[in-house]
Simulated scan of single mutants.
Amino acid sequence: MKAVVCSAWGLPDTLAIQDLPDPQPGPGQVALEVMAAGVNFPDVLIIQGKYQFKPELPFTPGSELSGVVRAVGDGVTTFKAGDKVIAFTAQGAFAQQIVVPVHALMPMPPGMDFDTAAAITLTYGTSHHAVVDRAALKAGETMLVLGAAGGVGLAAIEIGKALGAHVIAAASSEEKLAVCRAHGADATINYSSEDLREAIKAATDGKGPDVIYDPVGGIYAEPAFRSIGWRGRYLVVGFANGEIPKLPLNLTLLKGASLMGVFWGEFAKREPKANMAAMRQLIGWLGEGKIKPHISGRYALKDTAAALNDMAARKVTGKVVIQPGK
């Protein structure tokens, strides 16, 4: 089988396509034919050795996928060859085949396509953990989403609307904001051309948002946090801007506000039952049409570096997927 291999820390163009032996499942494992793999911003960081954890070199990047069961190992009774599944794994998704532990699998709902199935675990899992579990967003509250046209941003918009909240989307271009409106945003802010604090004030009648969802960091964090409402919850999701902001902690005192860290991968590992309950709710919302992953690009396995470069350059709206069979 063919797989993308990272042999040394570096930028996407240093990745190589290699022929590797077909992986065989051991006890409690399942071998899959990968039909689609989701691309996420952490993938860009992981191959550079800049993420929260570093895999041992060499490795195949990619953490979320959809596929078809090829074989099962000893002790696996819940899946069989031919089953369509969704999987989340630490690495290995950018390949034609993969072996994963059985607990990392979910059945694909009837009628779901492989691209959608590969695009729902990390972005929607992260945003559900952030918005529902950490911030406990309620109907009637207001949420501001920074970097709103990205994968986790669009997921946060849809989840906020599913909960009955008023959602304000902030992004860097009118094209991106149009995508946000198409996914349910009630109001939009272009922080490339508008003063962020003044725009937030105008959009919230001076009250400030109850929840701020921030996967961007950098220069937008402090003006956003200064604008938060009383008892507001600020979700620290990531730092796509590349800069980890240093917030004055007196702001939490003045606003009675909370800073909340969001690390979905660790949550999924430490609290697997809660994570599976969240995924079931997301699958239900998908069936009801309340959420729908926006897939803006599809790449062949040989074009994985191009997909990661587009992600790094912030050219991606919503999700892009790798289709290893092409």
Rank of each mutant, 00 (worst) to 15 (best):
I98Q: 12
T142V: 14
G153N: 06
M108Q: 13
V102I: 09
Y124S: 06
A139E: 08
V152Q: 01
V132Y: 11
V100A: 04
L105H: 07
G140K: 06
D115E: 11
M143Y: 08
S127I: 05
D113L: 01
M143G: 08
F114W: 14
L122E: 05
S127A: 13
A119G: 01
T123W: 12
F114C: 09
G147F: 01
A117S: 10
A104F: 06
L154E: 02
G140R: 04
I120V: 15
V102N: 08
A148I: 11
G125E: 00
G140V: 07
V99Q: 04
I98E: 10
V145L: 10
M108D: 05
M143L: 11
L122D: 03
E141L: 11
I98N: 09
G150F: 11
A117G: 10
G140E: 03
P101S: 14
E141M: 05
Q97G: 06
V131G: 00
A149C: 13
M106S: 08
G111V: 11
H128W: 15
V131W: 03
R134Q: 04
Q96R: 10
T142A: 05
A117V: 08
P101D: 13
G125A: 00
D115M: 09
P109Q: 07
S127V: 05
Q96N: 09
A119I: 07
V100H: 02
Q96M: 11
A104W: 01
A136M: 03
A135F: 02
L137G: 02
L137E: 00
L154Q: 03
G140T: 02
M108I: 12
L144W: 09
R134H: 04
P107R: 05
L144N: 05
P107D: 07
L105V: 02
T142L: 06
V100S: 05
H129N: 09
E141R: 02
A104G: 12
V132G: 06
V102G: 09
T142W: 11
L144F: 13
M143Q: 04
P110Q: 14
G151R: 08
D133H: 15
A149W: 13
V100C: 04
L105P: 13
T126K: 01
M112A: 13
P101G: 14
G153P: 12
D115A: 12
G151W: 08
A118P: 06
A148F: 10
G125R: 00
P109H: 01
T123N: 15
Q97P: 09
D115V: 12
G147K: 07
H129T: 11
A135M: 01
E141F: 08
L137C: 03
M108T: 14
A148T: 06
P109W: 04
G140C: 03
P109T: 09
G111W: 09
V99L: 03
M112Q: 05
D113K: 02
A148W: 03
P110L: 14
G125H: 03
A119H: 01
A148M: 07
I120P: 13
T123A: 15
V100F: 01
T116V: 15
V145R: 03
G151D: 07
G151C: 08
